[in-house]
Amino acid sequence: MAAGGAAAAAGASRTYSFKVVLLGEGCVGKTSLVLRYCENKFNDKHITTLQASFLTKKLNIGGKRVNLAIWDTAGQERFHALGPIYYRDSNGAILVYDITDEDSFQKVKNWVKELRKMLGNEICLCIVGNKVDLEKERHVSIQEAEAYAESVGAKHYHTSAKQNKGIEELFLDLCKRMIETAQVDERAKGNGPSQSGAARRGVQIVDDEPQAQSVGGCCSG
């Protein structure tokens, strides 16, 4: 029933399960970002959510069902070394900084370096400048941030948790990219002997009940 040879299975009856880690310093608003995303849309009746530390969301993107699990991490400097424990096996990472706080952007750079070192290019990175509602107090230049993101193979987004701006797009985009990566992985696995792909990284392709409640199209925000 699980992952493995499901690569050849019909696309319609597949569910991707993705793990996404949320990284960012204390006051950058990463928690409000996901809370806004997960709770604005629908009330999750399942008990699979831990208030603000662990959130899940079901999506339907172009007929592909996605189960998203968002893992919050502690942003304090003293817990920095614990990072690898959290982001092993993750498919995506959302790195949040505060556009008014140059320091928080530096932190993001550190995480990116570490993530690339530990997980290579298989993880989809999103660098997110939050609090665009405070544009006036911006301390991190847009050009610099976007250039940096491009240089490390990440996508850059601007969001405002307060005004609910850019959040939908961020997650939708991330999911699409993760699906692509997973498909490339599957294909690689189908062709080559390399077994390391999806299984190792925890992409689980699960045959799901067909009438899985699809979450009213994410684009129609």
Partner: peptide
């Protein structure tokens, strides 16, 4: 359980 809530809590405990 991988990637799910139990995994998350266990990871938290491990950290």
């Amino acid at each position: 359980n991988r990637g799910g809530i139990y995994d998350f809590l266990l990871t938290a405990l491990e950290s």
